[in-house]
């Protein structure tokens, strides 16, 4: 296994699940990501990512209530597992380490030429 390394989109989904807790399911995650990032994500990409995350054990899910607007189908709510939290933290630490390792000058790039 590639371990707990997160893809960029998977990280986004995972974070969104956290944000929406405890109301995170397919449609709400998709809408939230669209709202926050302006990306045109589709349901199927979100489901794909959720599927991967669940296989990696980073999220767990359970069925919730059925609503008439869903044609009587139940929602499936996702929550972050402890290894999911760990993965998020690791990712964040890696990022921060990298950020700290960048020399000051490198960030002072002039944008005009």
């Amino acid at each position: 296994m590639k371990g707990t390394n997160l893809g960029e989109f998977q990280e986004l989904v995972l974070l969104t699940i956290g944000v929406l807790y405890p109301e995170a399911y397919g449609v709400s995650i998709k809408d939230e990501i669209r709202k926050k990032t302006g990306r045109k994500v589709t349901l199927s990409t979100v489901h794909g990512a959720l599927n991967r995350l669940e296989k990696k054990g980073l999220v767990s899910s359970e069925f919730g209530e059925a609503t008439s607007i869903r044609g009587g189908k139940r929602k499936r709510y996702f929550t972050i597992t402890s290894s999911g939290v760990k993965a998020l933290e690791e990712t964040r630490e890696q990022r921060e380490e990298l950020w700290n390792a960048i020399p000051q000058q490198a960030l002072q790039v002039k944008l005009t030429t």
Partner: peptide
């Protein structure tokens, strides 16, 4: 095993 949630989600969006 995925059908219910997928179908539900698509349908929710649909409405």
């Amino acid at each position: 095993e995925l059908l219910e949630e997928i179908e539900g989600d698509i349908e929710e969006d649909y409405y």
